[in-house]
């Protein structure tokens, strides 16, 4: 498949892999319009890992699906912003070209491998579906590629397993299959949407390690979407924290853990159970994430914030402020450090 981008060596070195600029996504339901993503901005370079962290309903998955144009366009609608891959505006591309760019260069791995894989086709078929349909690879060669892919993700006995169906694999193995499938066309960006949430702890660690190895080998950009800060610490270079559709903090990973600037981030960190705190009560953040149709006025976090002042309620929601050292936070009181 020929490159559809006007690309020079110099551009490749300079333009970041993926840029998301002030992305806005809304959902229309009947007469209601709900803002699911409200001004998300980030940049992803080759070989780097960006983690997007947030509770359910924060808009992180919607962001990922918006990039890949997987949202159902009614009721969803990208109402603002830009998404650029190597400098090229993805949103402006007509459908076939977008599919070409996206399919060949960006791949996504979903959370529930059992639902995400088609139950009626063999794993081998699904692994190489894109290869055969887009690149017209002949069947015998495709079969070998499928075996290689399963090898890559460390699934034992690949020659036998490509003839099997998704429901015949264990959870962890299925997730490896998903990853293998995503890597089939050798993408430059891999988006992993909660890849380990459905797995148990030991398997989680294996999958995360696998992702890390593959990413390093291929110099891919990795976007890791999760609600689990613990997973983030091992793998990410940069962390974006999202709440109610907005980015509330963005910082390098060490800074996030050492000096969280937004009260929400601080609360998330405090609520992680720690082995050295045995016998103490788990700290939870009171209340629940807001329904996107009823986002509180002012700062959306104020009802749950330990520090809820008048300005938080009355002033418009705070924008991301540059705090130096590559740290940004959307809080009126961001300068004051939040010690975990």
């Amino acid at each position: 498949m020929t490159e559809t981008l006007t690309d020079t060596r110099a551009d490749r070195a300079v333009a970041p892999l993926l840029e998301v600029d002030d992305l806005h996504v809304e959902f229309r339901s009947g007469r209601e319009v709900v803002s699911a993503v409200n001004g998300v901005t980030f940049t992803l370079e080759a070989g780097r890992t960006l983690a997007i962290v947030g509770e359910s309903g924060s808009g992180k998955s919607v962001t990922a699906q918006a990039i890949m144009r997987l949202l159902q366009t009614p009721p969803a609608r990208i109402s603002g912003g830009e998404i650029r891959f190597r400098g090229q505006d993805l949103l402006a591309l007509p459908e076939p070209e977008h599919r070409a760019v996206c399919g060949e260069h960006i791949a996504i791995v979903f959370q529930d491998a059992l639902a995400a894989l088609n139950p009626v086709y063999t794993v081998g078929f699904q692994l190489t579906e894109a290869l055969r349909s887009r690149r017209h690879v002949p069947r015998s060669e495709a079969r070998n590629r499928a075996v290689d892919l399963l090898d890559l993700v460390q699934v034992p006995n690949p020659r036998q397993r490509i003839k099997e169906y998704p429901h015949q694999f264990s959870g962890g193995m299925r997730q490896r299959v998903m990853i293998a499938m995503a890597l089939a066309l050798e993408p430059e960006v891999l988006i992993a949407d909660e890849p380990t949430t459905a797995l148990d702890v030991t398997v989680q660690a294996q999958i995360m390690r696998l992702l890390g190895e593959i990413q390093a080998e291929r110099e891919m950009g990795l976007i890791l979407i999760t609600h689990d800060l613990g997973v983030v610490a091992e793998v990410a270079d940069q962390v974006n924290v999202m709440y109610a559709g907005r980015m509330v903090e963005a910082a390098p990973v060490e800074e996030i853990f050492a000096r969280p600037a937004h009260p929400y981030t601080g609360a998330l960190l405090r609520s992680i159970p720690r082995l050295d705190q045995k016998g103490q009560q788990l700290e939870a953040i009171g209340g629940r994430p807001p329904e996107l149709s009823h986002i509180p006025s002012g700062c959306p976090f104020h009802p749950r914030c330990p520090r809820d002042e008048d300005v938080c309620r009355t002033d418009p929601p705070p924008q991301l402020r540059d705090l130096g050292d590559d740290r940004y936070a959307a809080c009126h009181f961001a300068e004051e450090s939040q010690i975990p």
Binding site: E55, S56, T197, V231, A284, I285, R288
Partner: peptide
Amino acid sequence: MTSAAVDLEV
């Protein structure tokens, strides 16, 4: 690793 701070929804 448990997930951070999610209230139980009944």
